[in-house]
Amino acid sequence: MPDALLVRIQGTRLALPLSGEQTIAELGPVAPLPNGEPLLLGLTTVQGRAVPLVNLVPLLPATDTGPASAAPASADPDRLMVLTDLDGDRVALLVSEVLGVTALPTPAPSAALLIDLPGGPLLNPSALLLELRDSLER
């Protein structure tokens, strides 16, 4: 039963696998990078280190909550970020809210970005790293 960090990114709730490397911080100043959009918003600083800031929203499936949820999503800008470790690379993920720490069942090995689990979808760091590399090479 590995631990996971439960977060909300705009309308989507998902779990990040917890490896003890994660840190939650408020969003600081962001220096944009050329050709980074829409996934890579730029560089920001966490604990005195420059790390790339990743926006997961373009990768997440569109939520079917209608226009009613679109207004609070735009009115509630993401002001938090979770510093995490993607196969040795440290990146910051932009999140709307951190809900807490929970325990999830061990997932089967998968190459999908989001692994469906009874407690909610679990983010696959290796798949995210591949998506990021694909996006940057394009």
Binding site: D3, E21, Q22, G100
Partner: peptide, 10 residues
């Protein structure tokens, strides 16, 4: 929350 993450890592 960060303390919870540290606690989970311990």
């Amino acid at each position: 929350l960060n303390a919870s993450i540290e606690a989970a890592g311990a």
